[in-house]
Design a binder for these strands. Structure first.
Lengths: 251, 251
DNA sequence: TAGTGGTCTAGACCACTCG
DNA sequence: GAGTGGTCTAGACCACTAG
């Protein structure tokens, strides 16, 4: 058994993840220009004393995240910075904007218990009238208002959300994860434009009828149980970003 | 060598893809309920006379598309229909709406050659003033107007787009692929709400200032060369859908 | 023709879940 | 403890690209 000189920072991290992190760092350090070729998978395997299959896992991991791309028969290449920086992930508003170097904030408008309407019940796969915890907030970035979030949590025994706990956690998802072990794994989102109604206008301090970006989200737990329905309305200053890849399509 | 009863419809399709298609069909036929467990990977491997690794590739393929999900130590399960039907893919407007059973259409407003502004040049990684082919269209679904698309193609030798060819192909991406071998592989998108300006208002027959969903897209070829910048403005009736997964995030 | 990524195999061990 | 998915290996062959 050849002694591996590979020293994973986190001993629990699988080898292909360590390798992927190492490769990503090499790229982000600027040692490889955009669209330049990485060493071949066989060379990387030898250099890091791992099997080629492990290299392929690392390569695939980075490819899914838009960091590199492979061409059969040609090689593997560094994705242009514009693509590399982009990756759409399920994340709380707080982490999402935090990752851009901005400071997220919130003003809690209301927390109340309600009953699910037919529309929301249908989306969440629960019975109409099922208890929901509704959390309405104004979101801010660097102190400036950017939009409203109206979350409807599926009430489950033991789940309780109050102002103090939410303020302390700063993020609803963080509170759910750390306080109740509820971890979002997947979500579907639906976006469209819509005019501000009187409530929106009052809260966001814009005129009634002015344009808002409306995003509806249904979030699922790791076991694909519906967690929440969230209706978000953002001012025009807010940007929603996505990376779309051909591989997501079936051919 | 045990005789495999597996008969791939397309002989060029890799085994894991055939297997994935077979599994997907089993699910879509309704033989497996939402959140019910699939057979274990080892059982599937034996049943289909392939190695477990091939099964894992098929499982992963479907997992990425939101069709199934795996839990370590528990098993692999059918994703709920709501998630299953959702997958965001890079596609032409035509295929995108066609996949929903609607009939896409277009009215070509203008096709002209322009010079890249600094803003667009920066996004596309080309020099300001570089030639662009601008294609402005009104998009329709089932005959009803849904929005505007203003595409700016990076001009390359031999590339020519005219009304007749575009009308015939029906889709710009189809024309690019079949006519010029230019195949989009990846794109980044940026969405926000904005009020209609006078041009938008006139073309879309709405009032000036009424809300539109604005989507900016930069598309890249398989070799990550910028292909186009496209500015899209949609009426509130248009829905943009996305599936967001935790796996896209780095932890 | 040489080198690349893409697929496939057979086997091993680990981490996790659950009865 | 039995069964599951997750990782890893070593080797093989294929499909494709390029000089």
């Amino acid at each position: 058994m050849p002694p591996s000189r590979h020293k994973p920072e986190d001993p629990t991290l699988p080898r292909y993840r360590s390798l992927a992190d190492a490769l990503r760092q090499t790229i982000e350090r600027g040692e490889l220009a955009d669209n330049s070729a990485l060493p071949s998978e066989r060379d990387i395997a030898e250099a890091h004393a791992v099997s080629r299959d492990t290299v392929r896992k690392a390569v695939r991991y980075l490819e899914e995240r838009g960091v590199i791309y492979s061409d059969q028969g040609r090689g593997t290449f560094v994705a242009p910075a514009l693509v590399r920086r982009m990756s759409r992930f399920l994340d709380s508003f707080s982490q999402d904007t935090g990752a851009r170097g901005d400071v997220p904030g919130q003003q809690i408008v209301a927390i109340e218990t309600t009953a699910a309407s037919m529309a929301i019940a249908g989306l969440l796969g629960i019975a109409p009238g099922h208890a929901l915890i509704r959390i309405k907030r104004i979101r801010t970035v660097n102190g400036a208002m950017v939009g409203l979030q109206d979350a409807h949590l599926v009430a489950v025994p033991g789940l309780a959300v109050d102002r103090a706990a939410l303020d302390k956690a700063g993020s609803l998802y963080k509170l759910l994860a750390e306080g109740f072990g509820i971890v979002p794994a997947e979500a579907i989102e639906n976006l469209c434009a819509a005019p501000a109604d009187s409530d929106d206008a009052a809260l966001l301090k814009v005129e009634r009828g002015s344009p808002l970006l409306v995003c509806e989200r249904v979030t699922f737990s790791e076991r694909r149980q519906p967690i929440e329905y969230c209706l978000m309305k953002y001012l025009p200053s807010y940007r929603y970003s996505a990376r779309v890849s051909k591989h997501s399509f079936q051919n």
